[in-house]
Structure formats: C-alpha cells, structure tokens
Design a protein around this nucleic acid. Structure first.
Lengths: 202, 202, 202, 202
DNA sequence: AATGAATGAGATTTCATTCAT
DNA sequence: GATGAATGAAATCTCATTCAT
C-alpha cells in the first residue's frame, strides 16, 4: 500500500548491488573454502568478501546454504556437460564425465569431504549433489550398461559417492594418486565379458 | 603386547598402575570414538574411562597421540593377520585382508575420515597407518602381482588410501554400499587375462 | 484527534501520506506489541506495517518515541474518560476509572512492564504516562477524598504506579488475580468510617 | 577404580576451594544484579567475581540456575523468619513478615522484575519463590484469617505476587513509595468488621 | 601421579542503526 | 521520503588446555 503496485522491475534499483554482493560472497567463499575448507569461520568469509558478517547471514541463513550455493554454482557446468558427450560411445562418455567430476572435486578443498559430512547443516549439500548430478551420472551409466560396456548391477548413487570419496585427501597427501584409483574403479566397472573386452582394450 | 616387555628403566611398583590406566584409557577412547567420532570432547573420553582429564594429557599430550594409540591398538591384529592368510592363493589373501581392513574402518566411526584429515594433530594418524599397515598390504599386493593375479602398476600406498576413502560415509549414508565399491576397485585391480597382461606392463 | 488540526506550516500534498504512514505504523506497532511485547525487533514492526525500517526511524527516532506514540494513542481515551464519570459519586468514579486503566494495561503485553522499565529509551514512556494520566487520576482521587470516601494521604502518583505494577505478570502467570489485588488496594484506600477518620489523619 | 574407595571426606581437598568460588560467584552475582539487573551479561558477572566465564557455566549451567541460587541464598532467612514471629498476634506477624519480604525485594534490583519474568530460563525463579515462600505466607495469612483479623477470601499466591509487584520500580523511580502502597494493600486485606476493628487501630 | 576446576579464546548468531539508492 | 541491505557490536556458549591441590 505505501508503494504503488507499478513495478516493472520487481524490486527497484538496488537489485544490481544485491546480486553483485551475492556474487562477491560466493567468490569469496569459494576462495576461502579452497584455502581453509568449508568449516572456515563465517567471520573469515566475511573478511575475504569485504562484507559484514550479517550480510552473509542475510543471504545464506545457514552455513549449508552458503556451501550449497557455492557448490551449485560449480555444479551447473557438470550437469550440463553430457550434451557435448552425446557423440561419444557410452562408456567413453561415462569415463570422460567421471573424470570431469573428479577434476571438480579435486580442485575444491574440502568439498569432497563436506559432501560426505553428516555434520548438522550439511545434509542439503549431499542432497544437492545427489539431486543435480545423480540423474546425469545415472543416464550415462545406464547407457553404458545398455551398450554392454559396463556392469549393470552397479548403482549410480554408489558410484557417485565412491568417486567423491576417492578424491578425498588429494591436498593433504600430494603423493596420493586419486586419478589412478578412479581409473581402477572404472576398470572394475567394465564388463569382463570376452566379447566386449576386445573393444575395451585400447 | 602394545608396549614391549623390555623395560630396564628404573620405575618400581607404580609401573603396573600406569599401564593399567593407559589400557583403560585406550579402551574408553575406542568406545567413545565409535559412538561419537574422533573429535569427541576430551572430557567425554575422561568420563568414559573414569579418569581425570589431566591423566589423558599426561599419557597422550595431543589428541593425535591418543587417536594414534587407539588406532595402533586395533591395527596390531591387522598387521598380524597375514600369518593366517599364508596358505591362501595370493590374490585371495589380498582380497581377504582388504576386506578385514575395510571392516575395521567401517566399524570405527570417523576413523576413516580422521585418517585422511589434515587437521592439526592428525598427521601422525596417517603416518601410523602407513607405517604399520602399508608394509603388510605391500607384501600381499606384490605377491599377488608376482603370481600374475593383479596389475603390477598399482602402489600399495594408493590402494590403502583408496580403500580407506571408500569406507567414508557409511554411517552418514546407510544406503551407500562401500563394500561393493571396494569389490569394484579390487576387480579393476585384477589381471583380466594373460594376453593383455604383457601389454599392460610398461 | 491525536494531532491537532492546527497546521499552518508549509507542507503541501505529501502531508496526507505521511500522516497515513504514521497511523499505519502506530496500528502495526500496537498489534505487534500485544503479540510480542514492546521489545520486539524493529524489523518485525516494519514488516507488520508493510513499511521499511528506515521509515520507522524517520517517524520515531528512538524506540521510546514509538512506544510513547502507541501509548499516547491508547491513552487519549483514558484521559478523556472522566467526562462520562462526572455524574457518578466520586469514589465510584475513581473505582471505575482505575478499572479501565487496569483493563488497558492488562491487555497490552509488556506495557505495564515497560512503563516501569529504566531501560535506556523508556524514560519518556513513564513520563508520558505521568503527564497524561496523572492529572486525571489526581482529580478523581482528590474529589473522592474531599467527599470523605477515601484517605487523603495517598498521592495519585503512587497509586498510579501501584495500579500499573499490580497488572504485571498477568500473561505470564494466568493464575494471578490482578483484579482482586487492585480491589484490595482500593479497599485499603477507602475511608472505613467517620469515627476512625479523624485518627488516621496525621 | 583408579582411586581407591577410601573416601571419608567425599571429594578430596579441593572441596573447600570450590565452595569458596561458588560463594564468590553468588556474592558477585548478587552485587551485579543489584547494579545492573538479572539480565546483566554473564561476562560482567565473571569479571565482578574475578573468575572466568566458564566457571559460571560450570556452576550454573543456565542463567536461571544462577539467579535461583542467588535468590535461594537470600530466601532462606525469609523462610526461617516466622519462627521469631510466633509470639506476635497473627495479623502483626503477617504484617511484619510482609515488610521483611518487601525489604528484601526492594534492595535487590531487578529481582522483583525477574520474579515475574516469563523470559526463557526464569520460570524456575518464580517457582523457587513460590515453593519456598508461599507456604510461609500461607501459614501467616491463614492464621490471621482464622483470628478474624484479615479477609479469608484472599489467596497467599495472589498476595505474594502483588507484594512483589508493588516493589517494582523502586530504584527507577525514587519518588515511588512502595512501602505505603503495600500498607494500603494490607489495609485492604484487613477485616472491616467493627468488632475487630477497634483492636487494629493502634 | 591423578584430579577436575578454572580459564578464555573463538565461533555463532541477533538486531539496532546507518545510508546508498 | 522510503527502502532494506549492510554493518558490527554484543551476547552466548563450548572446549582444549593448564595447574593448584
């Protein structure tokens, strides 16, 4: 009633600033997360962003919300990725996407860990991951299995968690070859049937 | 068994009490760790043990020392295990031991996580694991590879971390089939047939 | 009625809006005060009013100003009330008005408390009460005493605070019979009989 | 098991210090409560006591516990008081005790307010008051009513809350004569029966 | 040697108030 | 004039660690 309903741009001129701040916050959080993990004090994120702590709470009431937001931001690319894999043979597409997924996790300090955290406020993080990426992986996995390239008795859910898990510790233990272990897992996933085996060898 | 009986140092009658306390502490810590994870407040461990907090600090100056001690305690069995696997075929022995290792990790809430933690005070935990168990796994893995059962290009170190990683999240996500993923990894490790074996060696 | 119609100052067309906003604010604040007490966050009042927080600060620089304003708004009726009590016998008029006063306080969650608060910003609240209602009560009390119905050695100020105090806790302790206690106080105020009157005067 | 059950003095030599600290804490809290009310920050109480904040939380997990403790300490005297009033006539004993009660409340800044607070954590305060003092007042009131000195239709509960309420605001408004208002209330409580009236006049 | 009371840094969270738009 | 995003002081509470007894 105080402000007339004339509202072509829903919320006035400030929207740009708010959005900018949100982006600043996401970038800052992403940066700090890489440096210090997702359990970093809120104050530190605020400092990195050059914003007040209250601003973080306004945008992301719980820590999970912030982590999810940072996360979601990065996940979009992965969720969209399969499009450019459409022409590859199914098992090759699967392999490529899994590698991209691993690359993503490996470069985000603590994200793989957080994804598996049962700490209060991180449930949504896991859920977000599952909701956004599981369908993608499931499609790739099903296609690959349908083509006889991979075992049909493995669930995408387990595979996703396993991939995520294998990425844990990359920073802490630089000598650990997460990539090779993922390849091992993928090899174990491959159909051992003699008929398909010849093609798998490359 | 944890502390060797070689004890020429002058100590006298109290040594027995001290050792008893240490054992009480280890058992209590193990129990609490299972219930509440390795990050449980010190006070809680003390309560479980029926001892004062100061006593914990006397025996284990840092939390890592305590976790390592608890860990060491449980690891002895694993380190000794291969003896009873001597008669199995190498790849079977490897598989059995890996499963025992996984069983161990899976039942210790947070141990798998802690093993990969880079939190201050947990480095020794990782080291301890590596020092005690890596030689065992290495022996089994080498024997299996020598028998042509498994790929020779995989390091025991990576395998150990990978197994540990795959066990993460079992409590938090009951639906996650860590065991199957470990089997997948072992399957990927298996030599598929003599013909391909020669080419894989490099 | 709250703001006198004497308004020769140059203001122009906006004055109506401003006044409307002020009224919206007062109604909203009154409503929220009843629900959540006078210490309710400013943001909540703003939300109830459908206005921005800045608008509240423009109209009422301090919280006290707002509370006083809400208060004043409700007090007008009480200040005007004695008119319709003119025909009653003095001690009856006094009793009726006191009950109305108590009714008012009892239905405003936290108002009785706030009236006696020495919190920063609530002094004016007390003052406002005193300035507006004390003369009214004083007139009634004096008339009653002059008629020989009540003791002449009780100040209206003390009586007002006492009435207010007796209303505290009505919401928190539903079993508390504030009304009976007020009646007790009024009974104590009553002159019991001419014979004793002379001795009580000192 | 670590410490033998030989335990004539239940908890060893430290008990004295602990008790001393608790007393220090109670005294400090009482002092600060007088100065700044029962809502004073915990840190301030700690500072006054010359102790750490953690110590407060150890002794009194919630603020209510501390307030109740401070309160209880002072209440014992009141609960015990009636003994020395045994020889007075009932209505005189009642009057004396009520005045002591009022004296107590009046000198504890914020106690009267807190007693009527519905803030989380203050319920026990009210309960404590009721449990300890209500029986005392009830006995005095019943005796007085039995003697025909006071009205039999007033509950001790209401009277107690009313007395407490009338003490509110003494510090904030030095001009307010709480004592006279209490006397008024007591006068209202007095039986107006002509037969007893003569004796009441003194 | 053992105890557990005390400490206090640090993390979270709320809200009054300001001020750019 | 109105808005509400941003600020950051302030308060709470937790625990690792020390140290007097």
């Amino acid at each position: 009633m105080p402000t007339p309903p004339t509202d072509p741009s829903p919320a006035g001129p400030k929207r740009a600033d708010v959005r900018r701040n949100e982006q600043v916050l996401l970038d800052a959080a992403a940066a700090v997360f890489v440096r210090a993990g997702v359990h970093v004090p809120v104050r530190q994120i605020a400092a990195e962003a050059g914003l007040g702590m209250g601003t973080i709470y306004r945008h992301f009431p719980t820590r999970a919300d912030l982590v999810v937001a940072v996360f979601k931001h990065q996940v979009d690319a992965l969720a969209a990725a399969p499009a450019d894999l459409a022409t590859d043979p199914p098992h090759q597409a699967l392999r490529t996407w899994v590698h991209r997924f691993a690359d993503f996790l490996v470069t985000k300090h603590g994200l793989a860990e957080a994804m598996h955290s049962d700490q209060a406020g991180f449930e949504n993080l896991h859920n977000e991951f599952v909701e956004r990426l599981l369908p993608v992986l499931d499609r790739l996995l099903t296609a690959s299995a349908a083509a006889g390239s991979t075992r049909p008795d493995v669930r995408a859910y387990d595979l996703m968690l396993a991939i995520g898990n294998l990425c844990i510790g990359v920073e802490a233990f630089p000598d650990y070859r997460a990539r090779q272990m993922i390849d091992l897992l993928l090899a174990g996933l491959t159909r051992t049937d003699p008929a398909t085996q010849e093609h798998e060898e490359h």
